Computed example of a mutant assay.
Amino acid sequence: MIELKLGEAHLGLLPGLGGSLAFWRLRGRDLLVPTADPNLAAQKNTPVAGYPLVPFSNRIGDGKFSFEGVDYTLAKNFSAESNAIHGNGWEREWQVAQHDSERAILFLDHNPAKGDDPAQWPFAYRAVLSFVLHRDGLSVEMLIANRDTRAQPVGMGFHPFFARSDDMTMQFAASSVWENGPDMLPIGQIACEGTWNFATARTIGETRLDNCFAGWGGKTVLGYQSAGYEVTIEADPVFQHLVVFTAPEKPFVAVEAVSNMNNGLNHPDLLENGVHVLAPGANISGVIRYKLRELRG
């Protein structure tokens, strides 16, 4: 484990376990909840507080997609479903490029031509993660570079497990949301109205979500009134979608700033699917910023 410390801020990183977060503590609070998911076998049932989503976010239906006239089949890496999920970055060991007390830079090279499993991803890429600890927050910078000789479609995001409380509120602006079918893949896009509208802060309570929101404004605020603080998530425009998972029986809420919509690789017909086609040597990058604000002065 790599540990970063700055004042009352403390971050634990697990490069060998998918570039994951072990914990994030600030002013005596555990802002994230380390969570083990036995369906994610590569995490070896180890609790993690967050992990990168590269080279795509969320699901690819039945692990299959087509790109530039070629059909591809990915390994189904989530035992509860028949879909490929969350890319392969969380399944791999990341290398440490550098780190000090406040910053760590990790990278992952995936290259099927050099023996990496093409069923994880058929194209060569490099991903870079930069974690910067602040006295009142955390910045996560992500980059994906195409190191193949062919163009490839990519997406990215980050999957943190925020601590849940009985009076926790959530606020963000989005234009639409994707409803899911039984296979948890999007089947229809509807306006964010009624129970889908979080433009005004709402108590999460018994809300149950596992959905991708589009037209996200790039900012989400999680409020913890009884604990006296709130966490703001702000993301660069490349992260144009927001995936939210919450269930009353879980001790966390996952609020994921991501680039591509769920199953976006199978929706090339949608101009705003968030999938980026990278030419050889090209890259995309962006920063997600998490900031704590005290509500009691």
Rank of each mutant, 00 (worst) to 15 (best):
D148G: 14
F158S: 03
W94S: 03
G194T: 13
S82M: 02
W178Q: 05
L133Q: 13
D117H: 09
S176A: 05
Q95M: 07
T195W: 06
P186L: 10
H134L: 12
D100Q: 07
S165T: 09
D148C: 09
L133R: 13
D116S: 15
P182S: 15
K114R: 13
G137H: 11
A97H: 06
R164A: 11
Y125L: 07
D136P: 00
M156G: 10
H86F: 03
A113W: 03
H99R: 03
F172D: 13
Q152G: 04
Q98D: 06
A145N: 08
G194P: 11
N180Q: 13
I85F: 04
H159K: 05
M156W: 14
R126N: 05
W90N: 03
P122Q: 07
H134K: 14
M170S: 10
F172Y: 14
G155I: 06
Q171S: 10
L143N: 05
A84C: 07
Y125H: 13
L106Q: 12
Y125P: 04
F161A: 07
A80P: 09
P153L: 00
R164D: 13
N88V: 00
S130L: 03
E91P: 02
Q171I: 09
E81K: 14
R164E: 12
A145S: 12
E193I: 12
Q95I: 03
Q189V: 00
W90F: 11
A174N: 08
P186K: 10
F123C: 08
R103F: 09
G137A: 10
